[in-house]
Design a protein around this nucleic acid. Structure first.
Length: 533
DNA sequence: GAAAAGGAAGTAACCCGATT
DNA sequence: AATCGGGTTACTTCCTTTTC
């Protein structure tokens, strides 16, 4: 059945339930005083019904479901349904009621929408399934030979998307995260049939952005969680927002509340996102404002919320309304200058009071449309972490990725720059047993310089393409391959740079074919191919 | 030889029920 | 509603082993 029909029919069920609830025949559950009573949650074909575990309510519910089935013509499959009882219902009572309804009892350990429905103490075990998913996916792709560029797409679009669903409302444990990164790194550096191989770079270094010399793999976990926090603040009318607000911060705002007692796992996660929200969120001030001056982020262009105060006696109690003229939407300049230090006062006066903002509303300052985006949040958080481990690798990485060449060629250049191209010399440095000499000419040691510029065949192919005139002067000036290639890539003519990149890739490809498949191309042919790509 | 992985042990955090 | 404590689980740190 089409999903739309499902929704239409479900509306009917929802209405039915509402009627019965309002008559008092069935009571929804309330997890806390002040939270809305929830009697049902519907998600496409899945229905969650909540009610008291008494015989009358059970029979009422069954009657309701029967009339729904008759009216809609939809059979409810009781064998596929499950019931979960609270701990304080004794065993015989549970069995009786389950029997009346004709459904299984569950312990609550099952999964719903690919998420564990109850998260207990051993989260490691609860979330271990993520690793299985990933492993399956990787295995299903093993055996196909993917270029590094292909693997990049695969990793970014497929593999990292698997945990993202779970990541959107729970922070994955470090241990599991470590394993995931390990798996991805193995996949990245591994060969066709095996995930083994020299891991030339740690995953953390691949997570640098492309401009910083990495490949831009990301970990969005915290940012996705923060998105939920943003929703919680900006959409107070959503059911979840209401429930969480009533349970955890009934009298204060989301940003200033303490963790509270008996916090749930999800609340813990949301709660942690506050400090990241304060980095990118700003209040837009409405007509009547309850924003507390000291504890809420509402100033523009300030990284810290706290500041120095002149007459600091009760600033913690005042809100924005107190430093504003009544009736007119303007700052009370006199008052502000009296209470705050000079700099702070200037900052305050810079905050615009917009006529068309009626109510206080939270906006995301990193985006034009002021709506939270995981992407901008990621860069924001990262910019705050720069003083820690994250530092960029030296080099002009921008020009590398801007070259007009197929991605596979650019990836090869990147590997050369990063010093992780498995030439014989490099392999021996990593203590892999192999002969040191070039496999094509067997004259000299195989290092990058020799492969791409020194070897007889390659030299010839440079001439064939007519690019030799470009690189010849460089050969004498630079001793370092990186600097040489970089110089060629930064020449104005992007088409030429692209040709150089392609030819380099063809040379490397030819070398690999020669070594592994004993299949060697003529230099002239290489040159021609590179020229016409 | 270097980096990653594994192990052990001590410490912090957490869950959850009991208590008032 | 809030706090406390017992028992687990997770994290940290340091060290050794393994792998290429």
């Amino acid at each position: 059945m089409s999903p739309y029909l499902f929704v239409l029919v479900a509306e009917g069920l929802s209405a039915l339930i509402n009627i019965v609830v309002s008559k008092g025949d069935i009571h929804g559950i309330q997890i806390f005083r002040g939270t809305p009573k929830v009697s049902h949650l519907l998600f496409t074909g899945d229905y969650f019904l909540f009610y008291r575990a008494t015989l009358t309510e059970v029979t009422n519910l069954m009657g309701l479901l029967r009339s729904y089935a008759e009216a809609s013509g939809q059979e409810i499959n009781m064998t596929k349904s499950e019931v979960f009882f609270s701990h304080n219902i004794c065993r015989p009572a549970r069995e009786d009621m389950a029997c009346i309804m004709g459904v299984h009892q569950v312990l609550g350990t099952s999964m719903y929408l690919r998420l564990p429905s109850i998260i207990g103490r051993s989260k490691k075990a609860n979330f271990a399934f993520i690793k299985d998913h990933l492993l399956k996916k990787i295995n299903s792709w093993r055996g196909r030979s993917l270029s590094k560029a292909g693997k990049e797409v695969m990793t970014k679009l497929v593999l990292q998307a698997i945990p993202s669903y779970i990541m959107s409302d729970s922070v994955i444990l470090d241990d599991i995260m470590k394993d995931i990164k390990k798996m991805l790194n193995c996949f990245w550096w591994g060969g066709i049939n095996t995930n083994k191989g020299v891991m030339w770079l740690a995953w953390e270094k691949l997570m640098y952005s492309k401009k910083e010399g990495g490949l831009g793999f990301r970990d969005f976990n915290m940012d996705m969680v923060t998105k939920q926090g943003f929703h919680m603040m900006t959409k107070p009318k959503m059911l979840v927002s209401k429930v969480f607000k009533a349970r955890y911060y009934p009298r204060s705002s989301f940003l200033e509340v303490s963790l509270g007692n008996n916090p749930s796992f999800v609340w813990r996660t949301l709660w942690r996102s506050r400090k990241f929200l304060t980095l990118g969120c700003r209040w837009s001030i409405g007509d009547v404002s309850r924003i507390k001056v000291m504890s809420e982020p509402w100033l523009r262009g300030m990284n810290k919320v706290a500041w120095e105060v002149l007459k600091g006696k009760c600033v913690y109690d005042i809100n924005v309304d107190n430093v504003r003229l009544t009736n007119v939407k303007q700052w009370d300049v006199q008052e502000i200058r009296d209470v705050f230090t000079h700099d702070v006062a200037n900052d305050i006066l810079k905050v615009p009071l917009l006529e068309d903002v009626l109510e206080d509303s939270m906006v995301w300052k990193e985006e034009q449309n002021e709506v939270y985006r995981v992407k901008s949040s990621y860069w924001l958080l990262r910019s705050f972490q720069t003083n820690r481990l994250i530092c960029r690798e030296e080099g002009d990485w921008g020009s590398l990725w801007n070259i007009k060449a197929p991605p596979r060629a650019k990836h090869l250049l990147w590997r050369i720059f990063r010093g992780c191209l498995p030439t014989r010399k490099k392999l021996r440095q990593h203590f892999v047993q192999c002969t040191p000499n070039c496999q094509l000419c067997e004259n000299s040691e195989e290092d990058e310089c020799h492969v791409f510029f020194g070897c007889g065949t390659t030299n010839q192919s440079w001439r064939e393409t007519g690019l030799y005139s470009n690189i010849e002067p460089c050969l004498n000036n630079f001793s370092d391959v990186n600097a040489l290639i970089l110089d060629i890539c930064s020449i104005k003519d992007m088409r030429n740079a692209g040709r150089v990149a392609v030819l380099i890739w063809m040379i490397w490809n030819n070398r690999n074919n020669a070594i592994w498949n004993n299949d060697r191309e003529e230099a002239s042919k290489l040159g021609m191919q590179a020229y016409h790509t």
